[in-house]
């Protein structure tokens, strides 16, 4: 049995401390120790992207980091984005376009698409495909996933446009 060590990090905005073995990955830590199971574990060697989480504001592979390395880090998982407008738009369009079958890859896809839409003013199909290429889906193909990502982007842009207009009217 491995001995365990206390790990303190910021998880979805709250400071938490849990004990974990030194060789436990961040992905296993989130699922088994903390009980947050939106983060999935597929290949366990950095290829599939199912375990994608935010580490200090950027997406990373949860299986390519030991939990003990995350001491002091700011970790955000899909659960922590439940009230996020961009994530809600992505979830809505993934649902509307059947951008999943078994759902195993979905949380990783959502996190990756979330960072992509947050980092680009004007997302393009080609860029979205390149960005999502680090996440494997073994059942739907990628067409609907890319479509849903771009549709969410359009909806968010339209909403932002309305807000700008309202702000303009308020100023006038």
């Amino acid at each position: 049995m491995d001995s365990v060590f206390p790990i303190t990090l910021t998880l979805n905005g709250r400071t938490v401390t849990h004990d974990a073995p030194q060789r436990m990955t961040l992905a296993d830590f989130l699922r088994q120790t903390v009980g947050l199971t939106a983060t999935h574990i597929g290949c366990e060697h950095g290829v599939c992207g199912a375990c994608t989480v935010y580490v200090d504001g950027r997406i990373a592979r949860g299986c390519l980091m030991f939990a003990i390395q995350a001491e002091g880090c700011d970790i955000r998982t899909l659960e922590g984005l439940a009230d996020d407008e961009r994530m809600q738009a992505l979830q809505k369009h993934f649902h509307a376009r059947n951008a999943l079958q078994c759902g195993f890859c979905t949380s990783g896809m959502l996190l990756t698409a979330h960072q992509y839409l947050g980092s680009q003013e004007e997302p393009s199909r080609e860029e979205a495909r390149e960005y999502l290429s680090g996440n494997y889906c073994r059942c739907t193909g990628y067409q609907a996933i890319v479509e849903a990502t771009l549709a969410a982007s359009d909806e968010l842009a339209a909403k932002a446009g309305c807000k700008d207009e309202e702000a303009g009217r308020a100023e006038a």
Partner: peptide, 9 residues
């Protein structure tokens, strides 16, 4: 090089 989630680390 690899993918965005790798380039971040």
């Amino acid at each position: 090089i690899a993918h965005e989630a790798i380039r971040s680390r």
